[in-house]
Design a protein around this nucleic acid. Structure first.
Lengths: 341, 341
DNA sequence: TTGAAAGCGCTAACAA
DNA sequence: TTGTTAGCGCTTTCAA
């Protein structure tokens, strides 16, 4: 593999001059620069990023930390979309992306921050890491610049990008209220997820502004899981037949809820309106197509990468980014018919 | 950031000894080893992979080259599944994964192999790269060990893993023949994709063994695209109403074909059987659920990573891996009713 | 069992 | 405009 040494020898100059020429420093005669570049091209030279990193103390590499890449992620396609956005931005820069993932099967003995330090990533994006993950703290408390997705923590070295979950939720519930619904249940994720807290907040706000009271019996958790949501929804709908609409904090849970309703012989949307959150691919394919609050996942990835790079380049930017949602009305929601009560 | 130098100073030994202790060399007294390790832990030491790479000439890094990560990939979810498999294997090793992607918007000025050489990846997995991609040659012809997904090229430094497309195709068509179909069309991808060639071959073989003759008018290309497939299928079904079954070389095209049939008022599967290839998530959600030839994508990723690492470690293994398919019978296929002719 | 020294490929003072 | 020198953090002879 060619090195600047080789080039220097052939060009009959010092390695310093080669380095300077190749990096387009000004203090090199145009003549030698051309000559050196020609030779470099000739020898098919590629700089050794590791050697450079060693001296500059920068790797031009950003890490993407994901909790566990598994086949289950195929359904709600978060990762690809986030990745697509990150990639889109990163491709415009001279950074590359390193993927780190903890694997539940054979838990790696190294922690995230060890991984990051070993590989000398300049910064890192965290996605899908659970709030309880002990390593989350570690990364945040380390001095490695990082951007969190959907976890609103902010400091001089940590930023985040998230969807405006409160507003998103609110829009969905307001829409249901407009349709005449008053008995609106909520299928949330789990209490310790930030997004769940925000989405619940939006639900409350919408009810409050419409002067509807909160009924805690109508608020349940489906753990962001289709199957669990189905069970929980079955229970809920059986116990509380008065409910005319269920707002779900994820499409996957909405799908489970739909299944539950179907099994109970409840017609959607005539007897029960269902709204989800995310706008996953499946949402438009199920029957009836699911009304949902869409979040722009690839934009989240894009913004996360952008923010991180800006942080790395010491730009003075806000470390908190919140993206708008869009209510997509399909056929799982409709005017209430007040079936009972 | 702590270095072995710091540790050496504190331990009162040479950096050589520290290096040896940390790497579990035998020629270090158990005593000093323990002491050094304790200090390292104390100082929260992480080795600098770049420095190590510089001297060992190995980066313990493998690259994943994908053509263009974009939102379109959400539908057929190849990347996540492949990634999931790769990650699964890689997590068991001391390798990390670097993601390279060419971005169509702002074409990167660097070629794949430049990227690989700069980042000093030990080897690379190529997925979703088009056969015509000029850079494909470059990587293959370079001395960088690589594993191709779905491109059967083999040499001392290149291996591949693919699905047994011929058998998969054959199974699907044989199954249609068993159901009584004789007028079986094929919606292929494009002629220059290896998988298309293999799938076509399987189609031919099944017909031949059943003593059915090939009708070239029934063989069309849908470019692996849902929309294009829909148009092509509309055309095909209009011109050739005698067709009772269409075997599609991808689920996405099968979906397009289904749409075409529906628009033409053709009932599936009563009047027309449709079979796809891939078993994407949507296959089981569309109506009627799609019969398809499933390929194990995450296994492909796993095997690709495994093969690459084995190649890197100079193990003498076969560079060609072919995985079995499984015919998943759902409701888009059925006994023929020989509607015309 | 330990250490001294060289060197991996590069950048960056400093000198000329 | 160019070269000399030192050094990034590590491994690896070679010698003690």
């Amino acid at each position: 593999m060619t090195t600047i040494k080789d080039i220097a020898r052939i060009a009959g100059v010092s390695i310093t001059t080669v380095s300077r020429a190749l990096n387009d420093y000004s203090d090199v005669s145009e003549n030698t620069r051309q000559r050196i570049k020609a030779i470099a091209k000739d020898l098919n030279y590629s700089p050794n990023a590791h050697a450079r990193s060693l001296v500059t103390n920068k790797s031009k590499t950003i890490g993407l930390l994901v909790s566990d890449i598994n086949k289950g992620m195929v359904k709600d396609n978060f990762l690809v979309e986030i990745l697509s956005g990150i990639d889109h931005f990163v491709a415009q820069t001279d950074y590359d992306l390193v993927l780190f993932s903890t694997n539940s099967t054979k838990q790696r003995e190294k922690t995230y921050s060890q991984l990051c330090r070993e590989r000398r990533v300049d910064g890192v994006i965290l996605q899908g890491i659970k709030t309880e993950d002990p390593y989350l703290r570690e990364v945040i408390e380390s001095d490695i610049p990082c951007v969190l997705i959907d976890i609103p923590i902010e400091s001089s070295t940590v930023g985040y990008v998230t969807t405006d979950n409160v507003m998103g939720s609110k829009k969905a519930v307001e829409y249901l209220i407009q349709l005449g619904h008053e008995k609106i249940a909520m299928m949330n994720g789990h209490n310790f997820a930030f997004v769940s807290q925000s989405r619940l907040k939006g639900y409350f706000e919408a009810l409050k502004e419409a002067h509807l009271s909160v009924n805690w019996d109508w608020i349940v958790n489906g753990a962001f899981d289709e199957g669990i949501a189905e069970n929980v929804a079955t229970n809920l709908l059986t116990k509380h037949p008065e409910i005319t609409a269920i707002y779900c904090a994820s499409d996957l849970m909405a799908l489970g809820t739909m299944k539950a309703a179907k099994k109970l012989g409840i017609n959607i949307p005539e007897e029960l309106s269902i709204i989800g959150f995310d706008d996953i691919l499946l949402a438009s394919y199920v029957s009836p197509p699911l009304t949902t609050v869409a979040q722009n996942k690839s934009e989240m990835g894009y913004q996360a990468a952008k923010l991180l790079v800006e942080m790395l380049e010491d730009k003075d930017v806000s470390h908190a980014i919140s993206l708008d949602t869009k209510l997509i009305v399909r056929e799982s929601s409709g005017v209430t018919q007040q079936k009972i009560n």
